[in-house]
């Protein structure tokens, strides 16, 4: 319990950038949760004969290539983009962080084997890895979540391990060990609270990575499949509207940019 409290106290003293990014993320979660409830139409409903209609009072964001309401579809697509990216980020960060921190206390051999495996995973470019899995397993949402979770795990592992190692060398950890504290106390109470800030911003970065990869896949037609829709596939299906400057393609583009650029700017560009 007190470990949790120290961690929360650590989070409360975050850099303003990370706090802003967290607020922003919360706002997007709220939109993903509540957005579809506000949608005036069902996502698949054809509401107008006019395709690629411009902004109007009836359909605020116009209509898409089949005459569906872009606004409603957009609200649904935000839900899927945020949901899938969040789940995969949770997988990658949970596994990565736990392994990364745990290996600071395990034997050297566990670390060596794990480290080599992670290096191997890192040497397959992320989009390529995703394409391989999709070629074999098809485009289901669980497969996407799992694949992206695996793809971004080595990064989370490396970040947390580097952080934990750096802090483990700190003199206050030595002091704690010299006092005779056990490993779990040292890891949970001495090391972890000092990692919270960097770890949270790492989660933010990995979320952005996941959104980017998912959107790219969907744009290639290999991500979220109809009738479901996410931001990338929304752009893909309406890409012909580009010639007319239709909101159907421009709006999802802008929303996607708002999502990723916003979080990255809030984090202050900590990614290398």
């Amino acid at each position: 319990m007190s470990a949790l409290r120290t961690c929360l106290a650590g989070a409360a003293r975050l850099a303003p950038g990370s706090r802003r990014a967290l607020l922003l993320l919360a706002a997007w979660f709220a939109l993903a949760a509540l957005g579809p409830l506000l949608a005036p139409h069902a996502p698949g409903e054809i509401v107008d004969r006019e395709v690629f209609a411009p902004f109007s009072v009836r359909h605020w964001l116009g209509t898409d290539y089949l005459g569906r309401d872009v606004g409603s579809r957009l609200l649904w697509s935000v839900r899927y983009t945020v949901l899938i990216s969040t789940l995969s980020t949770l997988i990658s960060c949970c596994c990565g962080f736990v392994l990364g921190i745990a290996t600071t206390a395990t034997s050297v051999w566990v670390e060596r084997v794990l480290g080599r495996l992670m290096d191997g995973l890192l040497s397959i470019p992320s989009l390529l890895f995703a394409l391989l899995v999709i070629a074999a397993a098809g485009e289901s949402i669980p497969a996407l979540v799992l694949t992206m979770g695996v793809i971004y795990m080595p990064g989370a592992y490396r970040t947390s391990r580097a952080l934990a190692l750096r802090i483990a060398r700190a003199d206050y950890v030595t002091a704690s060990l010299a006092r005779g504290e056990n490993r779990s106390f040292v890891i949970l109470r001495e090391i972890l609270p000092n990692m919270m800030g960097p770890l949270l911003s790492d989660i933010g970065l990995r979320f952005v990575y996941a959104v980017l990869l998912l959107s790219n896949l969907s744009f290639l037609g290999l991500g979220v499949q109809p009738p479901l829709v996410d931001l990338g596939s929304l752009v893909r299906e309406n890409v012909l509207g580009l010639a007319y400057g239709a909101p159907a393609v421009l709006v999802p583009t802008v929303v996607l940019a708002l999502l990723t650029v916003g979080i990255n700017l809030a984090l202050g560009g900590q990614r290398s």
Partner: peptide, 28 residues
């Protein structure tokens, strides 16, 4: 090795280190 000393021995021998910045956990 400190791990093989008794708790009482560890208690009775204390260190005050050079750099107080580094030996006090900033989160506490």
């Amino acid at each position: 090795a400190v791990a093989r000393r008794t708790p009482d021995q560890r208690r009775r021998l204390q260190i005050v280190a050079q750099n107080a910045d580094l030996v006090l956990n900033p989160a506490w």
